[in-house]
Each structure stands twice: as structure tokens, then as C-alpha cells.
Design a protein around this nucleic acid. Structure first.
Lengths: 163, 163
DNA sequence: TATTGTTATACTCTATAACTATA
DNA sequence: TATAGTTATAGAGTATAACAATA
């Protein structure tokens, strides 16, 4: 045990760093796993320059066409203010259109463009290959189902405490 | 299906947004779960102003006293350049000391101070309560063990591809 | 009064390049 | 030549406050 003085120390180079106290922690492993999975996702979409959050936004618009920015953003836990630039880029890339709403002139209704509908089909195929790769690491379909349920239970920790 | 023209749209407000296409994806659920668990961790450590990554660094130093900045940073997948300010703050808070190494004057050996060793005991207790809360959501000890193994397998996806 | 979209801003995390002093 | 620590910088991601238009 070193004192807090300023004597020179010896370098402990006895092999690799022991992280056994951390690898037993769910939060630590959860973070590492999430980074690895996102890494694989990003690599899978490198040709299309699509990140996981962008895939989520496009999918949400595709499945809920005509919903407002606020509604889509909230469902994905993205702040309305941070959602603006995301949609700006999709409009620039001609994948999404904002349309005025007659009944509520504050709102923008979001839709995929024809081009957006076309590319999202490709995206789903890429995502399916990625998902198959990930799922195989979890185990059998039964184990995959339990794994997703366990993750859902952890997510619910937050939902019950949100504002 | 809307055209890409600029006619006014109707707002689809038929209930909540359908995210069923996303909640079935491991990456999506992994991200949400990780955010929820980190949220609980941060709330648990609010009185001590310690984030998950900081807890990881202090634990790694505690278990590997005298290791260099480079060694600890690499083990935690933190860039050496980003590690500097982390350690700066710990030194400012008198939890960690950098000590010169006689045998290699480029390196800094890292140690917890007496104060650091004292507070990390408290931190471990807080972390244990947090971990118990999280573990209970996963299931039985046997299920917890499998869950951690599954996360490890996903993490390994990245390690095998790292530079 | 409250909500929608927006802008501005700030803080964290992460990534890269380049410097210095040492090896 | 290569490595350790450092600085500077830039890009994401995320958070809050405030504003105009509209409800």
C-alpha cells in the first residue's frame, strides 16, 4: 500500500489488468454488449451511412405515417429540439417529407418519400442479417425470447420513473 | 400512401406510436436497458457525483495499483487522450495519485489515495444495492449467470474485430 | 395557458492528429 | 522508431431555456 508521498513508484506490469470486479456487473457488461452490437450495426450500414438511431426513426415513421414530429420523437425518447436536425438531414437526403397539417397548423406530419420507402426495404434486409448474427450469439429462439424479456424488464426501470 | 407533393396532410393521432418493429430488436432493447440501468446507477450515486465510467476507473485502479495510465485506459477501452481529464479530476478530488516511475520516466503509476481507498468502500456498498435491484429483475441466480454470459458473447463480437 | 417546431447553447463521450519526453 | 502522457479539436448524443406561431 503506497503512501501519499511523492517517492518514485514501481510499475506493476504483472500481466494484464484484472477487471474481474467489473465483468461480474450487469451494467458494465450491458454497456460493452451494446457498444459491440451497435458497432456491428454501423459496420453493416457503412455503405448507406445509417446509424442505429436513424434506422429507428425511419422505421417509426414508416410504421406510423402522418404522425407528428413530437409524437415520433417522444416515442423514441428523443427531445423535440434534438429531433429537428435528424429530420432536416432526412429531408436533405429525400428520405422523409414534412407535410403541413390543415387541422393543426403547428404540427408537421412525417412521411417516408417514395425513395424512403424504397431504401427502407433494403435497410430491413441489412438489419435482418445483422439481427441474425446477433441472435445466434444469444442462443435458441426460446433463449432469445427470454433475453429480450429480461432487457424489457430493465428498460421498464426507467419508464416507471420518467417525468 | 401520400404523394411527395405539398398538399396538406391529415394528422394521424390514432393512439400511441407503434414501435413493435423496434422492440423486437436486440440492439434497440439493449440500448434502452443500458440507459435505464445507468440511470439507476447515477441516481444511486447522486450524493457522491460518480458516474458508471468513473466507478469503473476507480475499481480498476484499486484492483491494479501501480499500473500505468495507458494500461488502465486500454483495459477499459478508453483512449489515453480521453483518460487524462478523468484522472485530473480524481487527483483534484484527492481520490487518486499519479506517481513517477523510476524505471520508466514516461509512465505514471496510478494509486488510490487513503481517501480514495476509504470512499471506494462506500461506493462498493452503494453499487451492491444497485446491483441487487438490477439482478432481481433478471431472474434467478442461474438466469443471472446465463444473462451475463450472453452479454459477454455479444461483447466478444467487438473484441475479435478490434485493432 | 399549453403545445409544436425551432434555435441557441452547453456538457458529456468519443475519435484523431500532433506534440514532448522518454525508451 | 515506438511508446506514455498530454493538448487541441471535432463529431455525436443529450439536456435546458427561450422564442414565434398556433391551439
Amino acid at each position: 500500500m503506497p503512501s501519499d508521498t511523492d517517492e518514485a513508484a514501481k510499475l506493476e506490469t504483472g500481466g494484464p489488468i484484472d477487471l474481474s470486479a467489473l465483468v461480474a456487473l450487469i451494467g458494465y457488461q450491458l454497456r460493452r454488449a451494446q457498444l459491440a452490437v451497435f458497432d456491428d450495426f454501423i459496420r453493416s450500414f457503412a455503405d448507406h451511412n445509417i446509424r442505429p438511431s436513424q434506422y429507428g426513426v425511419l422505421t417509426a415513421i414508416d410504421r406510423n405515417p402522418g404522425s407528428s414530429q413530437a409524437a415520433i420523437a417522444q416515442s423514441l425518447a428523443i427531445k423535440r429540439s434534438n429531433f429537428v436536425k435528424l429530420i432536416d438531414e432526412f429531408e436533405r437526403r429525400k428520405l422523409v417529407v414534412r407535410r403541413q397539417v390543415a387541422a393543426d397548423r403547428r404540427a408537421n406530419a412525417l412521411y417516408l418519400t417514395k425513395a424512403g420507402q424504397s431504401v427502407i426495404e433494403q435497410f430491413h434486409a441489412i438489419r435482418a442479417a445483422h439481427e441474425a448474427r446477433i441472435s445466434a450469439l444469444i442462443g435458441s429462439p426460446k433463449e432469445q425470447k427470454l433475453f429480450l424479456e429480461q432487457l424489457s424488464r430493465l428498460s421498464a426501470l426507467r419508464e416507471t420513473l420518467e417525468d
